[in-house]
């Protein structure tokens, strides 16, 4: 099992009832979708709020950033970068700047 640190936007921290970043245990090679699957297993109320229930695709107004890179458009089965797997860096789910 690989521990992955995930930072959520404020709306989702409120919904999940957490403060600061969360850590989830990821089974397997720790891809983007593995990390999000593990997140939703720990926090079922987040299902549908990051990825569409039906298509499984990332919601339009969210981005995935880590290690200074935008990985939003990487395939969901892309392994997370080594520094994330080693727990040195955070996988960030970020809301687009889309008004407020």
């Amino acid at each position: 099992m690989t521990p992955v640190r995930i930072a959520l936007p404020a709306h989702l921290r409120n919904l999940a009832g957490v403060e600061g970043e969360v850590q989830v245990e990821v089974d397997g090679p720790a891809t983007i979708s593995d990390a999000l699957d593990a997140l939703e297993a720990s926090y079922p109320m987040l299902a549908g709020t990051i990825r569409d229930h039906e298509s499984g695709e990332r919601r339009d107004f969210l981005r995935y950033f880590t290690c200074g890179e935008d990985i939003s458009h990487h395939r969901p089965d892309t392994p997370l970068p080594e520094p994330v797997v080693r727990g040195e860096r955070v996988f960030r789910v970020v809301g687009a700047i889309a008004g407020g």
Partner: peptide, 8 residues
Amino acid sequence: WTDWHGQV
């Protein structure tokens, strides 16, 4: 609801 996260 929000545009970012859809329906709750």
